[in-house]
């Protein structure tokens, strides 16, 4: 038996990553590895560095020291490497960030057309397929402002998928949504997880973390405090800070 093949491949690795915003030490010596197909949920109080961490992975933020390697590309100032990583990594934002001047299907077609030079018809066909996957094909020719928040976020997920990324980053994807719309977005994310997508998700949806995540990471004050399977994390948290946090968010 060849052990090397059964060993999950590391697709993201952060080593001793530090990030400062001016004087503020946002990330402190972060070490994290993500295997192919792994689903990681990052939680923690606001200001703990969760968003900054995943934004460093596709270099929307630049780390100050340490190494970040994504799918074999080290993130440096080299534009070529940054572009290569961004093609492999899709991102979903808290505020959807759909392009308001483009229709839904145009939102999905823009990057394939510009970056991959895909032909118009082909890009549209692929876009429609993704819109079906997020169960929203009938909205294709509307503008984002005509859609509900939940629908917009599903479009944003489809848009991130249109470049066929190997990894998906979610930055609090349900935090800006009305409660009744949260489930429709989580369902789409759960589907993605079932299909084997590598996912890193910053969220406060603990139900989602419990049912979907392989690993839960708890951050506080720029540090990774605890990293565990969902069962261990929720039932048997090791650190004092984790216990306090869980008590606060699960108490009601």
């Amino acid at each position: 038996m060849n052990l090397a093949n059964t060993e999950p491949r590391t697709v993201i690795s952060l080593q001793n990553v530090d990030k400062y915003f001016g004087e503020f030490h946002a990330l402190k010596k972060i070490n994290l590895t993500v295997a192919k197909g792994e689903r990681i949920v990052i939680c923690g109080p606001s200001g703990s560095g969760k968003s900054t961490l995943i934004r460093c992975i596709n270099r929307l933020e630049q780390h100050n020291s340490g190494n970040i390697i994504v799918d074999g590309h080290e993130l440096t100032d080299q534009v070529k490497d940054i572009d290569a990583v961004r093609r492999e990594v899709g991102m979903v934002f808290q505020n959807f960030n759909l392009f308001p001047h483009l229709t839904i299907v145009e939102n999905l077609m823009l990057a394939p057309r510009l970056v991959r030079k895909t032909a118009r018809d082909e890009a549209r066909k692929h876009a429609m397929k993704l819109l079906e996957r997020v169960r929203i094909p009938e909205q294709a020719d509307k503008y984002p402002s005509q859609l509900s928040g939940g629908q917009q976020q599903r479009v944003a997920i489809a848009r991130a998928l249109c470049m066929n990324p190997a990894i998906m980053l979610f930055d609090e994807p349900t935090s800006a949504l009305d409660p009744e719309m949260i489930n429709e977005v989580l369902e789409v994310m759960t589907d993605l997880a079932k299909e084997g997508m590598t996912m890193i998700c910053v969220t406060h949806e603990m139900g989602f973390a419990r049912s979907v995540a392989d690993t839960v990471v708890f951050m506080d004050a720029g540090e990774i405090v605890e990293r565990n399977t969902p069962e261990e994390f929720f039932n048997n948290p090791q650190q004092q800070r984790t216990q306090t946090f869980l008590k606060q968010i699960l108490s009601h």
């Binding site: 572009d83 899709g90 991102m91 934002f93 960030n97 392009f99 308001p100 990057a111 970056v115 470049m163």
Partner: peptide, 21 residues
């Protein structure tokens, strides 16, 4: 909004493409 440029960057659009489109 700054987030729209970030969305474009995350999709792999170059700086010039983001500015134009």
């Amino acid at each position: 909004p700054k987030g729209l440029g970030e969305a474009g960057a995350a999709l792999g659009l170059s700086k010039v493409q983001r500015f134009i489109y």
